[in-house]
């Protein structure tokens, strides 16, 4: 849906890196290198970035009530 605020496993705050990550990856940079640059050195945090699919734009179209 949206990038989680923190890594599920270790609790590191990660959400503020999401847009930077998305921009650099869309420019065609190597995903692993981008994550190294952002300071994500554990594979738990890296997995959160790899597994995130942003669906909020779609989900926001539907009224919830």
């Amino acid at each position: 849906m949206l990038i989680p605020i923190r890594c599920f496993t270790c609790g590191k705050p990660i959400a503020h890196m999401w847009e930077d990550y998305k921009e650099q990856v869309s420019k065609g940079e190597d995903v692993g290198k981008v994550m190294n640059k952002l300071g994500l050195d554990r594979y738990c945090c890296r997995g959160v970035f790899l597994g995130t699919v942003e669906l909020i734009d779609l989900a926001g179209e539907f009224k919830r009530f």
Binding site: I5, H16, E19, I56, G60
Partner: peptide
């Protein structure tokens, strides 16, 4: 707040 994190995302009129 320490980091400028995206909390949610809103569409027009939301």
């Amino acid at each position: 707040f320490v980091y400028n994190m995206p909390i949610t995302k809103i569409l027009p009129k939301q």
